[in-house]
Structures are given as C-alpha cells and as structure tokens.
Amino acid sequence: MSSPHQIPGTTIFNGAEAQKGLALNKMCFSFNSAENRAEFVRNPEAYCTKFGLTPEQKAAVRAKNVLAMIEAGGNVYYLAKLAGIYGLNVQDIGAQQTGMSVDAFKEKLQAAGR
C-alpha cells in the first residue's frame, strides 16, 4: 500500500491513508446532511467522539488545521465539507496549507495563467 513515488507537498490518498482516515472522512461524509452539520456545530467535540475520531484527528479538527487533518488520513473532498461549515472555501484552505494570505494565494493562481 506504500507509494514509492514521492511528490513534494502531496499525499497520495492510497489504501493506508484511507484506512487511517476512515473515521474522520466518515464524519465529513455525514455533513452532506444539514441536520448533521447543525449537530456538529452545536457540539463539535461530542460529534467527533460519536464518529470515533482518534485524538490526533480530534486535535486537527479542533485547530481547523487542514494539513494536520490530511496527516491524520483526511481526504480533501471530504474535508471540504467540514471547511464549508466554517465558511471556508478552497482558496481559504489553500492559503492556510501554503502559509499564504488568501489574497497572495489567489494571486499565485492568477500568475499561473500568465
């Protein structure tokens, strides 16, 4: 299940990652339901416990730290549903992961077209 091909700043979401991240991703999958999103907002800690998140996953969710969530097996398609609860879009989480301001991150995207 290992990935011999290393790409800097990139996690290949393989079997090992998916196994590690199952609880976290399952919780995020539940956010397809408005009722579940509301339940999470009322008590995030209890909601994480309900889905059996590991201490590492809980800490990452508590800190709203996307890189830490990925490190704990999170997949970005599922994490984006959690980010949405906090009103964060993919530019916001892109900026957070790259340590840039949102404006600087958007400028980086614009620059890729020039």
Binding site: I7, G9, V76, G94, Q97, L109, G113
Partner: peptide, 13 residues
C-alpha cells in the same frame, strides 16, 4: 489543479 497539501494551488499550463 490541486486542493490539498503544501502544493495546493498547483497549476500546470
């Protein structure tokens, strides 16, 4: 496009 990781924002025209 890439949404995740330190390489988020990667584009290859």
């Amino acid at each position: 496009h890439q949404l995740d990781g330190e390489r988020a924002g990667f584009i290859n025209k």
